[in-house]
Each structure stands twice: as structure tokens, then as C-alpha cells.
């Protein structure tokens, strides 16, 4: 789409961004890289009368780590580009699951423009399942104050807010853990997701533990709690795999499009789960 009939505002900081949003009468939207929004507009969604550009905001552009209550937390500014996030040593070393899933988003040039905040805030970004598995939290500004909550809760919110940081708490090292984030697209790379599934198996004191999240395409990613519950605290030898994949197929609720039906997506999600399960079993006897 060539020149738009819309007014562009540039905010110095998050407070000014919020003020602008409150002051303009007509429709408006926050915009960072604009890579997601432009795709929507091209596909027929009407663009708003005002764009509030967040790119000039100096804060929330770093990735750093802190010691919080003796555990390490990794903080990712919402305005950090996907590319930077992908390459950052803290992400590469301590959150490889996130690094891997960012590596499957778009292509390098788009990742240089698109941000991690924009990926999450659009609600269907490919980084979300991995972040859910990592139990990520977010820092956000709701117009009044800056708050911290789990990503899972934030995704459920209906009201507008500005994402500021993604916070990942380093997982307890568990010897027998296995984590995965798989994206199946229509071609090998540079394609929208058909199924994205991420998870983590481990053995805890009270048995097997599973965290599982799935999304893909227009499907809003979420934790698959019922499937998790079937697995959790079970003895690894007696886990009823058939029943679990059956539950996964019921619980995962993908949205179909012109290319792939729900059924296919469910089947693939279940198959991927089985493969990861086998990998884990092989890895840890």
C-alpha cells in the first residue's frame, strides 16, 4: 500500500504515547516495526486515522539479566527487534527455545524491522508458544501504572496496554528435561505457521512434568492444560500415550484456512508431540 491517508505521531516515551492515544478522537493504533500491521492492511483490514509510532522511545530497547531472589531473570525490552533478540548471547545461551522459535519467524530482513513486543502484542506471533512454555512474564503500562503479570494472563486481557518488557526466569536445571518448539509451515521457511507447538518434559520429584502450548496461523496460542494434567505426576513407564494424544487433539483448537483443515492441524500437533516424547525417552532412557 502506497502513501496512507493517516496521521503519524511519534512518541518520546510511553507516557506521551498514551497521552496521544487518549487525545485523538478517531481510530488509532500503536505501531513499532509495522510489519504485522501492514500485512493486515494489505489483506483488507482498514488502517486507522492515526498511527502512534513507538520507534523513537529510547527505553525498553535492551536485553539484560538480573538476580532476583537468587534466581537469574532475563529481561527483553519490548522494542527490541526480532533479529537482535535472536542473536543475543543471553537468549542464545539461556533461552534457546525462544531463540529457535524467533529463527522461524519471517526472514532476516523482516526480523530486522519487526519487534518482539509486536510479535506478542499481535496475539498470534510465533514466539508466543515458546514464551508460554518458558513461563514468561511481562511488564506493561496500562495508562496508569506499570504492572507485572504472567504472559498467559496478559494475553487474556481485553484492554489496551503497552508492552514494555518480557521477563524470563531461568529454569531450575533439571537433568532429565527436554524442550522443543516446532513450527510447521506451508514451505520450509519464510511462511506463516500452520501448527506451532512448544513444550517441556522433565522428571520432578513427584513424577513427570509437562508444559505444553500450541498455536499456529490465526490460532491464538495457549497452554494445553488438560493435556498437561493427564501427564503430570505420572510414572513415566505407565503413561497412557494414546489417551494423551487423544486429549491433545481435543484440547487444541486450531483455526482452519483455505489450505489446511482443523483436522490436519490437530493430527500434526499430536504427531509432533509423539515424536518429541520419543526423543525425550531416547535421550533419558
Amino acid at each position: 500500500m502506497r502513501t496512507l491517508e493517516t496521521k503519524v505521531w511519534s512518541a518520546k516515551d510511553i507516557y506521551e504515547a498514551w497521552e496521544i492515544k487518549a487525545s485523538v478522537k478517531d481510530s488509532s493504533v500503536f505501531i513499532m516495526g509495522g510489519t504485522f500491521l501492514q500485512t493486515k492492511w494489505e489483506n483488507g483490514v482498514q488502517y486507522p486515522d492515526h498511527l502512534i509510532h513507538l520507534g523513537e522511545i529510547k527505553e525498553y530497547k535492551q536485553i539484560y539479566s538480573l538476580q532476583e531472589h537468587q534466581v537469574k531473570t532475563i529481561h527483553i525490552g519490548a522494542f527490541v527487534s526480532l533479529a537482535e533478540c535472536h542473536k543475543h548471547p543471553l537468549i542464545q545461551n539461556d533461552c534457546s527455545l525462544l531463540a529457535d522459535s524467533i529463527g522461524t519467524i519471517a526472514a532476516p530482513a523482516v526480523r530486522n524491522l519487526g519487534t518482539i513486543g509486536g510479535n506478542i502484542a499481535n496475539r498470534i506471533g510465533d514466539s508466543i508458544p515458546a514464551l508460554l512454555v518458558l513461563d514468561a512474564e511481562v511488564l506493561y503500562f496500562d495508562g496508569n501504572e506499570i504492572k507485572r503479570d504472567s504472559l498467559e494472563n496478559w494475553l487474556k486481557q481485553k484492554e489496551d496496554s503497552l508492552l514494555l518488557e518480557i521477563i524470563i526466569t531461568e529454569q531450575k536445571a533439571s537433568v532429565q528435561s527436554h524442550q522443543f518448539a516446532n513450527k510447521v509451515g506451508r514451505r520450509e521457511a519464510f511462511t506463516a505457521s500452520v501448527v506451532t507447538i512448544a513444550g517441556r518434559f522433565s522428571i520432578e520429584e513427584n513424577g513427570v512434568s509437562l508444559i505444553l502450548a500450541a498455536g499456529g496461523g490465526e490460532t491464538i496460542p495457549r497452554r494445553l492444560r488438560r493435556t498437561e494434567n493427564l501427564v503430570n505426576h505420572q510414572d513415566i513407564e505407565t503413561i497412557p500415550l494414546q489417551q494423551i494424544t487423544g486429549e491433545l487433539i481435543k484440547e487444541y483448537n486450531p483455526i482452519a484456512d483455505a489450505f489446511f483443515a482443523e483436522d490436519y492441524r490437530r493430527k500434526v500437533a499430536a504427531n509432533l508431540f509423539m515424536v518429541e516424547w520419543e526423543k525425550w525417552r531416547e535421550k533419558h532412557g
Binding site: 503519524v8 511519534s10 509495522g34 510489519t35 509510532h53 520507534g55 533479529a83 530482513a109 524491522l113
Partner: peptide
């Protein structure tokens, strides 16, 4: 290349 990084010139607008 924008600031030495590869980008799509069709996705970037003047204000950026």
C-alpha cells in the same frame, strides 16, 4: 541496508 542491516524498503515508511 538501513543502518547496515538488511530491510525491505517496501515495509518502511518515511517517518521511520
Amino acid at each position: 541496508m538501513m543502518d547496515k542491516k538488511l530491510v525491505n524498503a517496501c515495509l518502511i515508511r518515511a517517518y521511520q
